[in-house]
Design a protein around this nucleic acid. Structure first.
Lengths: 226, 226
DNA sequence: GTCATCATGTAAGCCGTTACATGATTGC
DNA sequence: GCAATCATGTAACGGCTTACATGATGAC
């Protein structure tokens, strides 16, 4: 899960650890802030597995915004060091995704055979990166989630009827609220599925039919150029 | 968290491990099924800490419903063994809560100083047992949760505006849905708070003022007298 | 000079999971 | 005889957290 988020972020631009954490918090903020204690080991693992390459960039260019994509920095680095906006600080380790990393990302993203891969958090994260998924995989993701929510709704309903006597008011309120939330989640998914199937695109920007190949082959991977 | 659920269940009647798991699944079904690998160790821990006592009840009485409260079983046990409903099976270990256990339950339930104690799961569980909480503690629980949800809403809102350019449609949908869900959670909490404050009782059964003693002695033991 | 922020990492621990090991009883 | 259900437990591992260790730089 953390791996997926990291690879997704790094698919768009190279970043160093500290910055990755900020993005995770600020942009993918819908899941709780990651601690360094899990982030750095995750980066090491990914590097060892060949998904990432790191460049020890001792000092960088960007003033507050660390990277702006262009890393012509190397030359300008020393120059900008003690200058205007140059915030050299300590030698950052800038990570860049590899082809292998893109492969792993794709695999994690459509974790078809990943059993526990459909809890709310994991699903939210996947969906947030759904643009990198081919349309059919996207649909499968949504439908898997839908089935799971239906199951859950069933369990909850069963729970409230099963109880000896009836539940006390507080417990009942919890169960009812859980059921309602689940229902709303389901109809959200239903809307997404409908949008996915419609040629129009209620989820705007989700390309209708043509050019499913702008993410072909390698996810993203050009998403930068243009 | 598991401890809390176990103690809560055992506060009402004594049960053996296997049965506890079923109840957890069926009654408190709104949180995912507990595995034996975590249940049994938890029971051992609780027993070691003095929260529970266990009786090796080799064979029991109840046919399908294992315990009906009375454990006059001991004598009847051998007799009922290979009889009518007697499903002796293997020697069950029946757990009973102790005074110390009730103390621990009360402490866990209103985990005032328990920092991470307010995530959705934990909150749901606490609220489900809220009837054992004195009214003011109940209110504090709700208000803590409310503050947390407000915070989260803020983070999510901030996340969606912060993103460079704007989020892609899928990510945006995730963020928006998260925000809506959070809003609904907040208004649910608000209703509960209102009900709590009203003398009437919109949460029916939540006794206004009198007879807080029908659960006295057991659980909570009225929050250290007054 | 000291505090906040940036930056990277390690170590210990928590809380849970899956998989394994064992075995009795009932129903087919 | 075999499978399902009941029943208890251990071992290994996973993924994340907190706390610790280190240190540079810029702002006040």
């Amino acid at each position: 899960m953390l791996e997926l988020a990291i690879l997704g972020l790094l698919g768009e631009q190279e970043l160093h650890g500290y910055e990755i954490r900020k993005r995770l918090r600020d942009e993918l903020g819908f899941f709780s802030p990651v601690s360094f204690g899990s982030l750095y080991p995750a980066l090491s693992r990914l590097e060892r597995s060949g998904a990432l390459e790191s460049a020890e960039e001792p000092l960088s260019a960007g003033p507050a915004v660390p990277m702006t994509g262009s890393l012509s920095g190397e030359r300008a680095a020393l120059r900008s060091r003690r200058q205007a906006g140059g915030r050299g600080r300590r030698g950052r380790k800038v990570y860049r995704i590899t082809e292998e990393g893109r492969r792993q990302f794709a695999e994690l993203l459509d974790g078809e055979r990943d059993q526990g891969a459909d809890d709310a958090r994991s699903f939210g994260l996947r969906l947030a990166f759904a643009r990198y998924l081919p349309p059919q995989a996207r649909l499968r993701l949504l439908e898997r989630r839908r089935a799971q929510l239906l199951q859950r709704l069933d369990d909850v309903r069963h729970a409230s009827s099963t109880g000896r006597g009836q539940l006390d008011p507080y417990a009942r309120s919890v169960v009812e609220h859980a059921a309602e939330s689940t229902e709303r989640d389901i109809s959200w998914i239903d809307r997404l599925i409908a949008a996915e199937r419609a040629p129009g695109a209620t989820v705007p920007g989700a390309r209708p039919a043509e050019s499913p190949d702008d993410l072909e082959g390698s996810l993203v991977q050009r998403e930068g150029s243009s």
